[in-house]
């Protein structure tokens, strides 16, 4: 595939147990871009936020699958998190800081705000009854790597 250095897809049931699996899997895949420790933490955080959203909001009632697709293009990491769940009417509303439909679960409505501050690009596509797709693009700085800190 043009301009793609590496690519992977995983799918898993929308169970909260898989939130840690998802962020560790993406962090391990992203390690080949030589990220700093801060970048690695940011990658884990955005995956955790997106996957949690898919699990809580995509499939509030029934079980379903979460699809996680990652591409490395030079020093850019693209992460797509997709569910085939209930979808939402208004993606702009969802992007507002502190907006949440689930205050009962102590959700703060900060998830997408955090993602936006950690990535260079975020797009959200959603259709009621069909599901939601989040695409996040993160640039990895070239200079230093986590390996430097780990020594």
């Amino acid at each position: 595939m043009r301009n793609v250095d590496n690519e992977m897809t995983i799918m898993f049931l929308a169970k909260s147990e898989n939130e840690s699996f998802a962020r560790v899997a993406v962090a391990a895949f992203a390690a080949q871009t030589n990220p700093t420790l801060d970048e690695l933490t940011e990658i884990k955080t955005i995956v955790s936020e997106a996957v949690t959203n898919a699990i809580i909001h995509g499939y509030p009632e029934e079980d379903g699958y979460v699809f996680l697709h990652c591409k490395i293009m030079s020093n850019r990491l693209e992460i797509v998190v997709e569910d085939h769940g209930v979808g939402m009417r208004d993606t702009e509303e969802a992007r507002q800081p502190l907006f949440t439909t689930r205050p009962d679960l102590d959700r703060t409505g900060m998830g997408l705000t955090i993602i936006e501050s950690y990535v260079q690009a975020l797009t959200i596509e959603s259709k009621l009854g069909e599901g939601t797709r989040l695409r996040m693009v993160k640039s990895i700085a070239k200079e230093q790597s986590a390996a430097v800190y780990e020594v």
């Binding site: 955080t45 955790s48 102590d106 959700r107 998830g111």
Partner: peptide, 13 residues
């Protein structure tokens, strides 16, 4: 070692 917005929710609650 790691926390996301779910932690913020627990703290705020």
């Amino acid at each position: 070692a790691f926390m996301d917005s779910a932690g913020l929710g627990v703290f705020l609650g």
